[in-house]
Design a protein around this nucleic acid. Structure first.
Lengths: 110, 110
DNA sequence: TATTTTGGTATACTCTGTTATACTGGTTAC
DNA sequence: GTAACCAGTATAACAGAGTATACCAAAATA
């Protein structure tokens, strides 16, 4: 139980490190929801600026969370896609959405 | 599906707002794991400073995430306990621990 | 009686995530 | 042809989260 607890804090802190900040989870969620154009993702996340989206996308591409495709000849030149690795955050996001919904229900008074 | 997606981003952002920062989740986790003394919590979270713990605990008490009890006559003077509200983060924390463990397994090469 | 532990506070500083605003070159729609 | 849209970059500035270090009085322990 001692050893176990230490392992769990570490795991928790690792996850927080990877998902840190205001934007990574909403971006992942947006892309997984089918938004794959830059402006599309931007519009789908209230409050985010072009700059933050640009930076986070680059960061997440470097860490293989997403895949960026640029094809000059294609109808859609730039494409963002989620990787399998990215999809592994699904359960976390689901739980957070669930919490957020219930929380709002509570403070709104149902 | 349109409306739904908007609601989900908002819910996600609400949750991120409440749990923001490096320390809230580890603190919640620690207290829920039975650590209820100040120094006990502090020791259970690698990297946290006295100052951050103090600040976060105050903040979380104000937001009814935890309950602080100070009893001059008791054997243990100061006690931190998790509220039911706090416990509602359980599923999120569990998923994050799970992710962190598997992630470490992956990069360590199993 | 001396030392350690407890539950913190005080001060000062760093750092970077985040915001704000403007701009650009290319492409598509009207 | 021009207006709007795309995928971003450039520059500057700020707020506050987080770090580092020292210190304190009271209680427990040796």
């Amino acid at each position: 139980m001692e050893r176990n607890q230490q392992e769990e804090v570490r795991a928790l802190q690792d996850t927080i490190y990877v998902l840190g900040g205001k934007w990574k989870l909403p971006i992942i969620n947006s892309i997984c929801n089918g938004n794959n154009r830059f402006r599309e993702i931007e519009r789908s996340i209230p409050g985010i600026t072009t700059r933050m989206l640009s930076r986070e996308l680059k960061d997440m591409e470097m860490n293989h969370l997403i895949k960026r495709t640029a094809d000059k000849d294609a109808a859609v030149q730039v494409l963002y896609e989620s990787t399998d690795y990215c999809k592994s955050f699904g359960p976390i996001i689901m739980e957070m959405i669930k919490w957020g919904k219930e929380h709002r229900k509570m403070i709104t008074g149902k």
